[in-house]
Amino acid sequence: MFDRDKERIRRAQRAGQVDTLIGEKVVIRGDIHFSGGLYLAGRVHGSISAQDPGAILTLAESGLVEGEVRAPVVVINGELRGDVHASERVELASNARVLGNIHYKVVEMAAGAAISGRLLHAETQQLHAVPEAEHAPDRPLRLNTAAA
């Protein structure tokens, strides 16, 4: 069952499937949660997040997002004002303009793309994370602070 789902996701990503189209004259004020392929040529004032492990967000040249984006694959050719969190891949086309940090696993950037923020590799962030305590002690620790 899971193998079929993974293969379906791979085929959709290769095909660039678009399930939802937001046209140039559309302005959305609020958050968007999507599955599949979302092609955005309009404006969104709010966050965008994917609920599907095979989801693809494509921001067209005329598109504008003012808010955080979270999706496995993010293709940008417009303007994005906010952080990008891509669990798989970020593609920055020649007209991409990002004002925010990009958290990525793989990044592809064309000549002409502009970023005003930081590129943060996902695996590097995990290496520098502070590990949490695995088990809390059953009783408080007593330290001997008396001078020896």
Rank of each mutant, 00 (worst) to 15 (best):
M1F: 04
M1V: 06
R4G: 12
G16C: 08
V18P: 02
E24M: 08
E24I: 01
I28C: 01
R29Q: 14
G30M: 11
I32M: 05
L40F: 10
G42F: 05
R43P: 01
V44E: 07
H45A: 06
G46E: 09
I48F: 05
Q51F: 02
A55V: 05
A60F: 06
S62P: 00
L64D: 07
L64T: 12
V65W: 07
V65Q: 13
E66T: 10
E66Y: 07
G67W: 09
V69F: 04
R70H: 08
R70K: 15
A71C: 14
N77E: 11
L80Y: 02
D83F: 08
H85W: 13
R89K: 15
E91I: 10
N95P: 00
A96C: 02
A96M: 08
L99V: 09
G100W: 08
I102G: 02
Y104T: 10
K105E: 12
E108M: 04
A111K: 10
G112N: 07
A113R: 14
I115D: 00
I115E: 00
S116F: 00
G117D: 02
L119I: 12
L120N: 02
H121W: 09
E123Y: 03
Q125E: 14
L127W: 08
H128E: 07
A129H: 08
L141C: 07
L143K: 05
N144A: 04
T145L: 13
